[in-house]
């Protein structure tokens, strides 16, 4: 983990309510896809944990949804604004078990961390398929960006306004894959966990205090004992997950 100041170089809406922010700064602690940063905002006591969407040189890309006053404030930051970030948080995805045909499954703002993962897997010579799920066509983002990496993209929308009508699990059934990586809201993760073939890794979300393991605010139970989503997570292996109910 590192603490450092970053400069906003882009902050623009991708859809109504979802923004992309690019930042420049010391990214030396950012090690792998699936990690997150914790953003300090003026006048807000707790930082906002946001997953890393991509890393290019010293530039970080974050994609975030405006869900409350903090993220709204973040969306109003201008180019050149300075932000205090904790970087290199969380374990991130382990790419080694992906084998030849990994499947990525993302839902809503669970899609962004899969982008960097997809880029790394493609660079590694894997044949990557991504199932990206949204509520409706107007909320879809990054489908073209995934395609541009050489990823086969299958879109789903709950209302059928674009791609396959239904949830990500409705598009996974006939796919042939060697391993899977998922990120999205917990109900989606649970459905994926039940529907997916073979093994995979799932990235979880929880309300955090510190984001670096000190407060024990985001603990969850796993097969191997309690884990902190912010430190031993957010990515859990399928085999270690214990669902709350």
């Amino acid at each position: 983990m590192r603490q450092g100041f970053f400069t906003v170089t882009e902050n623009r809406p991708l859809t109504d309510g979802v923004f992309r922010m690019k930042l420049r700064g010391d990214v030396s602690a950012v090690a792998r896809p699936g990690q997150f940063v914790n953003v300090r905002l003026e006048g807000r006591f707790l930082r906002r944990p946001i997953s890393v969407c991509d890393l290019n040189g010293d530039q970080l890309t974050l994609i975030y949804k405006v869900v409350g006053d903090g993220t709204r404030q973040m969306s109003e930051l201008l180019l050149g604004a300075r932000l205090d970030l904790l970087t290199g948080l969380g374990n991130g995805y382990d790419l080694s078990p992906a084998e030849q045909r990994p499947l990525l499954i993302g839902g809503g703002v669970g899609v962004p961390p899969l982008y960097w993962l997809a880029r790394e897997l493609v660079a590694d010579g894997r044949t990557v398929t991504a199932v990206l799920g949204f509520n409706r066509a107007a909320e879809v983002f990054y489908a073209e960006e995934f395609s541009a990496l050489g990823v086969r993209v299958i879109l789903t929308t709950a209302d059928g306004s674009r791609g396959v009508k239904g949830f990500v699990t409705d598009a996974m059934m006939d796919l042939d894959y060697t391993y899977y990586y998922a990120c999205g809201p917990e109900p989606m993760l649970k459905a994926v966990y039940r529907a997916a073939k073979g093994s995979g890794q799932l990235s979880f979300e929880e309300r955090m205090g510190c984001g670096f393991g000190a407060c024990m605010g985001c603990s969850c139970r796993t097969i191997t004992g309690s884990k902190r989503i912010c430190r031993e997570g957010p990515v859990l292996r399928k085999e270690e997950i214990l669902w709350a109910d």
Partner: peptide, 9 residues
């Protein structure tokens, strides 16, 4: 400890 969420701003 308690079930989550266990942090609020």
């Amino acid at each position: 400890g308690n079930e989550t969420p266990r942090i609020a701003e």
